[in-house]
Design a protein around this nucleic acid. Structure first.
Lengths: 349, 349
DNA sequence: ATTAGCAGTCAATAATGCCGACTGCTAACG
DNA sequence: CGTTAGCAGTCGGCATTATTGACTGCTAAT
């Protein structure tokens, strides 16, 4: 679609602009990249690229800036999204230190992705629209106050305080949970509700609480997430002084509308890049989004990196791809699935 | 220390500046406040206030801006920190909707305080340097993978995945936790470590994990906290364009050094205000901090609101004071303490 | 002690001119 | 015919200057 030399020049423009955040001149290109032609030729090519909409100029006699279309072309030509070995080692080292804690994994992953990509990262908790019951436990706190601990499929823990009508000894509470656990095990909330059981008042209260917790859990999509590196957004020259940045920050803080940014057509283990005005939300029109999914069909989470359209796509995509695989393995363990997913290489849409 | 009229003028200056974020002129004061004197007199008083360091001027022929000393005086004259009844009702309504969940309480409280005070709010999880064991539970996840659920005093829940040497049936896991629970109940990690018990390898592994979790839990001070309303910082005109704001944001995001901002001398149920350069941390020299404590001796948490020195102190102090009492009640319930704390009125330092 | 009035100060804004970074074009070149 | 050197033209950015208007500080009258 673009002849090789033109493509090479466009990619050089994008690379330089990503690094320097300033319009690129024809001279700069021949100086910094090995194009083998003179600046005049580059100017001719740039005129063509501008005409075709791959780049634009802030004003008549200015250097060129990649447009969304230009970035899209650039991203399409990228390949080899493996992280440097040193970084891979660093990551696996850090993960060994927080062995065995889902929340720590996600929080750590968000922190690392954010640091590696120098942008804001969000990771949503693996989520399934119909959680399965795994285990419950009742712990007496004080008088008639009882802590209900609920373990869902995938080692997800929920808690809820219950106020009982009368004080109940711990031994009886334990007996109740011991009785309910085998009955509820492996069922989702609809199935639990449908059970025809002969229950005491107390047991009914507990069942109601369990169902309610599961309902809330199933209901929240992008509400539960780990957010890291908001300050990188502010560091970006294109954001530091604008009104836009504020709207984006607010969206991030409330997680509202984060879901709407995700395009529906995304297969697992594939990294999708949404550039600038391709975003559905108006506020994110000068942002790019790199989105990965992880987990299993029964519990999928999303990794996303948000930054200005001028972001280091290769690094970002590599980070997201790496963690997509890593977290998928971890979640597979939690859900007792042994299928090892094919890994190693992903390519953006 | 300041004669009544001078004090009244100073407070008028502070009030106006808090509302408008612009230097106040003598004319504006006589127009907007009922001072009963002419602008010339106000100018004379302002000259005095400037000489004494309560206010300063950005340049020679400019209006006046309160200094930290001026704010300090202003805060000292404030009284009546009750929230409007409508807001109190709104709060108790919202809290009824998330009955029984500590994490939701704190998260909600941070959100409300932030909204009410139009500034950034942080609430730390109630914390004690030597947590007490309450209950543990082992849930088989898959093969030899087991989820250890640990409940600490105060309904705090921790989780950890364990990889066992062999696969162990759920019934045996339940038996183990049933055996360990009465042994550990009410003890802190040192006491648990000191127990001379005859344990199997498996039980030893579990004990080690329990102690390690408790150790980590006891170790982290301000790490666990709920942060809300960072975008308010960016909205403030004094922050929107500065380098400072970035440093503050970074500090907030990493929670580092948040602890160092808290003055040590603070009694429970008392709200402390730290103004501008009174802050120990250099980065926070144009910030003010309103700090409240809540909880019990055995589990105290901190509420803090951070914003520019030009913040609506009355509203902020009232919000913090209100939630200090509210959360104290809730925590007291969790810890099985029935002492109702004397409430209603607090005054800042 | 208070006040009116006036002179003086200084930031903010607009207007102007200059510099330099780039491009677009044209004509020459291989 | 693609490529290149060179030059004219454009426009943002920066520094300089002028103008305005919002305040104060001072002084003299009340």
């Amino acid at each position: 679609m673009l002849n090789p030399r033109t493509g090479k020049i466009l990619n050089s423009i994008v690379n330089w602009y990503i690094d320097h955040a300033m319009p690129v001149s024809s001279q700069t290109l021949v100086r910094d990249y090995d194009l083998g032609v003179s600046s005049a030729t580059v100017r001719n090519e740039m005129a063509f690229l501008e005409q075709e909409g791959y780049i634009f100029r802030p004003h008549t006699s200015a250097g060129s800036v990649p447009s969304d279309k230009g970035y899209r072309f650039y991203v399409g030509t990228l390949e080899d999204f493996t992280l440097p070995v040193s970084e891979q080692r660093m990551i696996s080292h850090l993960f060994h230190q927080v062995e065995g804690r889902l929340d720590e994994w996600l929080s750590l992953a968000a922190a690392i992705i954010s640091r590696l990509s120098q942008n804001t990262a969000v990771i949503t908790v693996p989520h399934h629209p119909a959680s399965q019951f795994r285990h419950t436990e009742l712990v007496s706190i004080q008088d008639n106050l009882v802590l209900l601990v609920l373990v869902l499929q995938g080692a997800r823990i929920k808690q809820q305080l219950l106020t009982l009508e009368h004080q109940v000894p711990q031994s009886e509470l334990s007996a109740i949970s011991a009785r309910l656990n085998p009955l509820f095990g492996g069922l989702n909330r609809a199935q639990i509700s449908d059970l025809k059981l002969d229950l005491s008042d107390l047991e009914r209260q507990i069942l109601a609480a369990v169902v309610k917790i599961m309902q809330q859990e199933d209901g929240q999509g992008y509400n539960q997430s780990y957010l890291e590196g908001m300050h990188f957004l502010l560091n970006q020259p294109e954001f530091s002084h604008s009104e836009r940045s504020l709207a984006v920050m607010e969206m991030l803080e409330h997680r509202t509308a984060l879901g709407t940014l995700i395009p529906q057509t995304q297969e697992k283990e594939q990294v999708v890049v949404v550039i600038g005005s391709e975003n559905k939300a108006e506020v994110a029109h000068n942002c790019s989004l790199v989105i990965g999914r992880y987990g299993l069909d029964e519990a999928a989470g999303t990794i996303m990196v948000l930054g200005p359209t001028r972001m280091p796509y290769r690094r970002v995509i590599a980070s997201v791809a790496h963690f997509s695989v890593l977290l998928s393995h971890l979640v597979a363990d939690l859900y007792g699935v042994n299928t090892f997913l094919e890994t190693d290489k992903e390519s953006p849409k």
